[in-house]
Write a protein that binds this DNA or RNA. Sequence first.
DNA 1: TGCGCTACCGTTAGCGCTAACAGAACGGCA
DNA 2: TGCCGTTCTGTTAGCGCTAACGGTAGCGCA
Lengths: 340, 340
Amino acid sequence: MGNNNDRRLPRLEDVAARAGVSHQTVSRVINNHPNVSAATRARVEAAIAELGYRRNTAARSLVTRRTQTIGVLASELGQYGPANTLLGVQQAAREAGYFVSIASIKGAGAEAISDAVRHLTDQGADGLIVIVPHDGTLQALERLDLDVPVIVVGGAGEGRLSGAMVDQKLGARLAVAHLISLGHRRIGHVSGPLDWIDGQARVDGWREELAEAGLSDDLLVEGDWSAGSGYRIGQQLAEQRGATAVFVSNDQMALGLLRAFGEKGVRVPEDVSLVGFDDQPESAYFMPPLTTVRQDFEELGKRCMDLMRAQIEEGAAGGTLVVSPELVVRASTSAGPRLP
Amino acid sequence: MGNNNDRRLPRLEDVAARAGVSHQTVSRVINNHPNVSAATRARVEAAIAELGYRRNTAARSLVTRRTQTIGVLASELGQYGPANTLLGVQQAAREAGYFVSIASIKGAGAEAISDAVRHLTDQGADGLIVIVPHDGTLQALERLDLDVPVIVVGGAGEGRLSGAMVDQKLGARLAVAHLISLGHRRIGHVSGPLDWIDGQARVDGWREELAEAGLSDDLLVEGDWSAGSGYRIGQQLAEQRGATAVFVSNDQMALGLLRAFGEKGVRVPEDVSLVGFDDQPESAYFMPPLTTVRQDFEELGKRCMDLMRAQIEEGAAGGTLVVSPELVVRASTSAGPRLP
DNA sequence: TGCGCTACCGTTAGCGCTAACAGAACGGCA
DNA sequence: TGCCGTTCTGTTAGCGCTAACGGTAGCGCA
């Protein structure tokens, strides 16, 4: 294991001396350049192993102008979706030899975004993945005029920005179609905040599916993603009794509705059917287990990283990447009541 | 602004030329060295602003041997606790001018840990924060013989490793004491996996509090943190009816128990009281709202970063940092049944 | 023999920054 | 006046690496 008399880490020079070659040859071995004889390569590799040599990233970055670092900018890292997207990005990145640096922000203000972006570019990030699924994100990023690839998760690519998303509108339509197929005619929607991309897209999907079935889309209430808002809205809905089914824009709000309905004596699914969105691991253990739309965030993160690498390494053009969601039917939905 | 004819970013040299000083003086201004006259400083700062100069991190790291990067190694980033700890770390880090690089692993194997650590040290991380609350973590890290500060979240510091944790044993005792004060005498525990540090610590706290009250600690079942395991265990418990109260080692498993109890006709809290652990945002909207022990993960993350900075910047010795948990009483606990 | 090509390896320069040292200017004091 | 110390600024070297180019040896072929 290397005779570390001094605490200094070994450099190319040290490896070269031990292998009896020049430091440049060692560099070639490390970088898999073709023109190195098998014998030399073996000697060098042995020397590397003996000294425990590890390449100095800073020195390499200085000359290549690449840091092998992807910056991830996220606004709600504590949430299930963003956290798992990050996880997927990280896995794919590490496998490809990239580092992942993060910057989280509160809210989605343009200034917070630009601060965080500056932080990441200061580090020399080779690419940015932005998980701030808010309306203003795209414009805020456009204005920054960045010279590295940027992928906006949850947004469609516009101009130099790429996008990656789970097809929210499709997910919403799957949910609503499921309810319609069960015989429901009055289908309400508890949406997320409408200035959030996903929130709006799910409203659109809900509306479109209803329109195609000739049903009314007047039962819309806006929540804020939290279980608390779901609870408050659920209390209102329980008293109105306007709908036989409700499509809720995420599982947490659905949990709030379930509790409100439980307290008001509205039975799910006998009186009202409920569909959520996300399929968090807990949703299968709600009472009753929640029918919901699954988003594979980890897959989304991985695909993001693939798209990023294509742009960084091959100069590929950006684009918009779409992952399909999937309906998971559990016990919170059943046939609608026999009404005219 | 700045007149970027060529796409090359401005360097110290460019700023120096514009301000009519040497590049070293510019460096001094950037690094807040004292011996720069006010006039010169102003000229340099103006030039920096005009050119939009940003320091090259790689070049700086090469010479200072510091990257201003903290590596965070985590095993369950999708979970509420780790994700929020990371968030706290990240915030404090950015405020202090540090970058945060992450490496996530599946499970807690020694090899996975050493791979991830190598990844982070390859990047030149100035310090490591490890969020892998598993028994083997400390030993695995000890063996790696690292030469940067390491903080193990959830573990007590041993030797050169520092620790940072929420006091799990105290949390467990708060939960059990609450149940005892309500009159319960038969208090069971659904634990996390016993090879997880937190899982074991909560068992210890439960046992100690029971022992001090002269109560039996024979009602222990081991879960795996998931709602699913809570559900399966809940089904058994509902049939045995051995306890009037159950302390569950996290909120997700408690959710599983609630559903199992609901299905079996066991009322909470009338028949059995339930206390969870973590206080995830959803727990207030369970049916019934869950009494639980709150851990302030974000605070923990911030304090971690403070400890880290003290070690990096002032060469301070490590230590073990403890954050206190807090009992949050909701509707899942009530006075025990009047039994002998 | 001479020429050209290929395969392999070494030498040199420079990426952008900071540390260390070297001056210059100035004031205080004997 | 001369000397010393302080304050400010410039010059030089080098962090560890890769790109670019140069050189050598070996081979095929006319």
